[in-house]
Write a protein that binds this DNA or RNA. Sequence first.
RNA 1: GUACCCGUAGCGAAGCUGGAUAUCGCGUCAGACUCCGACUCUGAAGCCCGUGGGUUCAAAUCCCGCCGGGUACACCA
Length: 567
Amino acid sequence: MDTKALLAKELAGIIGMEAQEIENMFETPPNREMGDIALPCFKLARVLRKAPPAIAAELAQKLSLPEAVREARAEGGYLNFFLDGNKRVRTVLEAVAAKNEAYGSSDKGAGKTICIDYSSINIAKRCHIGHLSTTAIGNALYKIYSFLGYECVGINHLGDWGTQFGKLICAYKLWSNRESIEKGGIDALVELYVRFNNEADEEMENQARAWFKKIEDDDAEAMEIFNWFKDITLRDVSRIYDLLGIKFDSYNGESFYKDKWQSVVAELKEKELLVPSEGAQVVMLEDYNMPPCILLKNDGASVYATRDIAAAMYRKKTYDFHKCLYVVAYQQNLHFRQFIKVIELMGYDWAKDLIHVPFGMVSFEGQTLSTRKGNIVYLDELLERAIVKAGEIIDQKNPELPDKETVARQVGVGAVLFYDLYNSRIKDVDFWWDRALAFEGETGPYVQYTHARACSVLAKSGVSATDALNNADCDYSALDNSEAQEVIALLEGFPQAVDAACEKNEPCVVLRHTVALAQAFNRFYFEHRIITEDGNATNANLKLCAAVKTVIKTGLSLAGIEAPNKM
RNA sequence: GUACCCGUAGCGAAGCUGGAUAUCGCGUCAGACUCCGACUCUGAAGCCCGUGGGUUCAAAUCCCGCCGGGUACACCA
């Protein structure tokens, strides 16, 4: 039983309430001088029919304190507890040592599968900064859920369906050839599509429709070209995924469901949910304060809601997910509410496990993203510039660093991922180069630097992080100072931060906790010598240092950011 | 028009399942490297938490109105 639970049990006995109820009332005081744990007594006033300050004072007197609690002090309506620093230090550091890089992980997700639909790129289009959030957030959630014991399935739900692919093949047949596409790659495809839209006449539009029909009908030639275009796109984007260290478990996109949505439509008809309206087939949702969900166009073709329902059913059947997350921008809020409601109306209770994880829009220096106006930054360009900048700083500050290219990549990519993940998902982001490439303050490189510095101290001492963590000869009184205690409190809170990030589907919770840990460690570092004359005090300091290094590395890794030992 | 989201120091944000003097970074100003990595650290100035009501012992946080910004709303995805 941990300290809070012990305290709660003790208090519950005196007050005459459930221990769990008391435990839920505990808070952390706004600052350390006020204590480590606080019990606000205001709610108790009604039950005990006394003024809160009197209750706090009385409890402080009657309470017999658990071993790990040094003092209980009544302050106003609060009862504040001060933990025994040495015992707390020992408990926390031993907890980190016991799990090492798995500290903060758990098995709460054991046996449960989470599908995560993210990144979901479009075929024959280049990735730009508008695709960064879905990719970064989805990847971070994948890592966080995995860390908590869930089985994750990363799904890149490719945008590979629609008449534009008929247009693309038509344009290719008219104006291009295999060689120049192989050579020009994705840019050549984009160019063809733009040209088609500028120049196409009635005849060409008809041809395009015919080509799309051939894709629908699995025509050999059409499928060969279509799949080839897909390969080119995936080959191009794989450079970005490689840089980010991202892999997917499935690339089943929209076209995968071209022969699977028909049964959904049949089922909707059978359940009398589908009704004709203005030529289309829709499910009416006015009872739920939503416009109708269109499932078949007036020409009988499917729309994306149809395919999304088919995909959800396929995923449920294939993976039997505990939850299925969709990391998609908030513009699609209504769409998700609609098709999830339709699945619910079909009678599937697992509709509640389909969770839209929305995020905000990206603009570029105050302007809407627009290829035409040039208000666009491509993802590969962004990553490249970040890596180049990191390389320049290394050349300037640490020219002797071994394996500079790798470190430049880790730092550059880390800066970009951090920039995207540090704030709440839902906020719109206005992209500015100098912000995305900032390396000081609350940034990825700052946290990475702190990690490298901790590594450096350990290297200097000649002890590995693991040995430092497991060293039993520690004089913990060396850590009896406010800077070290602050670090300890943050190490202690790390598992809860990971858990909260998972519950809220908010990677920024872990990242912010990790930044706070780095800041606290830097303050400790400046106020106190780590390596001193006193061997056992040094061992305690090094143990703290190793714990910080380990937890920072974990925190960054959950955001998909690497932590080099030197930079 | 309807629905949803956002509005916290000059700028970018955290805090939003209500609790003690509202926190962090950038920028500004003043400091700290013979010493374990200055991509660092210390200090100062700067917020009536968009606004008006309400609920409560207690509101940045919950409810209602208004203002400002954004997104979506039938056969694109």
